[in-house]
Design a binder for these strands. Sequence first.
DNA 1: TCAGCCGGTTGCGTTTAGCAATCGGTTGTG
DNA 2: CACAACCGATTGCTAAACGCAACCGGCTGA
Lengths: 171, 171
Amino acid sequence: MTSDHIRSGCPINLTLEALGDRWSLIVIRDMMFGNRRHFRELLNNSEEGIASNILADRLKRLTEGGFITRADDPSHKQKAIYSLTEKAIQLVPLLSAMGAWGRRHMPVTKTLSVRAEILEKGGPALWSDFMDELREMHLGEPRPGTGPKASDQMRDAYLAALKEEGGTPRS
Amino acid sequence: MTSDHIRSGCPINLTLEALGDRWSLIVIRDMMFGNRRHFRELLNNSEEGIASNILADRLKRLTEGGFITRADDPSHKQKAIYSLTEKAIQLVPLLSAMGAWGRRHMPVTKTLSVRAEILEKGGPALWSDFMDELREMHLGEPRPGTGPKASDQMRDAYLAALKEEGGTPRS
DNA sequence: TCAGCCGGTTGCGTTTAGCAATCGGTTGTG
DNA sequence: CACAACCGATTGCTAAACGCAACCGGCTGA
C-alpha cells in the first residue's frame, strides 16, 4: 500500500504490502460490485464512510500500483472516471474468499452478504463470468458469455434482501 | 484488527477489520506454514523481520479475536505455545487466493512461492487435507486422511527450491 | 445569476508502525 | 554453584498513517 521497501518475496506478504490496509480493498470492492466509477460516488455511497482525503490518497496509490486507471469523463470537464485494470479484476477470487470467510466467522448483515453468498456458491465458473463482465465494463473488451449475467444475479439477490429488510439501495 | 467499532456488516469489510493490517496474516501464515508455535520462533525466523513489540501486540489481538490460543509449555515455565483455532484454520482458502494472486502480479521469489504454487494447483482438495493436518497439530483432532501429507509436499518443494538457490531453511 | 456539484486539499489531533534497548525470571552447561 | 543464553514480553521514542471537519476554485444546469 504505502512504502516502497519490500519486506520479502513471499507472495502472501507482497499481497499484504500492496493491499493490506483498511481501505484499498474497500475502494476496489465498491468499484467492482457497486460499479462506482467517480470520486463522489465512492465518497457519498460508501457504506463504511470513507473520508475524502483518505479516498483521494487511495485512488492515487491504487493508480500508481496499477490497480485502477483514471480517465477524463467527456460529459463533464471536471469528472474523472476510474476503471479497474486486469490486475484488480483478478482479485475476484480473493474477494470471494474474504466474503466466504467473513460470512462464516463475522457478524455480517443479511443484506450486505447475499452477494458474497452467491459468489461463493457460484464458484470459479461464476467468478469467471463476472470477471468477463468487469473486463467489458472497465476495459472495453466485448463479453464472450451469452448466459445470465453474474452481476444480475447478485443485484437481484441484493435488492430482494433489501426489500425484505426495508432499506435504500446503495448501488 | 484493532478498533471495536464496526464500520459495516459487509463480510469483506469485517474480514478487513479483523485481519486488514500488515502483520496479522503474516503471523498466522508463519504458524500455519512454518509451524512456528513460540514467541521466539516467530520473532527470530521471521522472513520479514517483525519487531518484538508488534509481535506481542498481534499475538494479543489474535488471541482476543479468537484466531489463536495460548497455552503454557510444560517443558519450560516461561514458554508459551500458540495454537491456531478452527477460525484461523479456515483462512487456508483465503491465504491460498492471496498467494495465487501475488504469484501472478507481484515480484515474488521462487523459493518463497513454491508452497503457494502447490497450494494453488492442489485446489480445494489439497486445502482440505492441509486443514485436517492443521486440526491435528493445533487442535489435537486425529487426522482422517491416510494419503501423502499436504505439508510434506510443500516442505519438499520448498527445500528443493532452496537447494537450487543455495539458502538456509527457515522452518 | 447562482446553487449545487466536481475532484480533491489543508490543518490538526489521534492512533498505529517501527526501531532499539532493556526487563526479571528460567534453564542448560561447565 | 556460577553464568551465559534463552524465555516472553515491555518501555521510550520517532515517524508514518488514520480520521475528522472545513474549505478550495472550477464547472454545470436551471
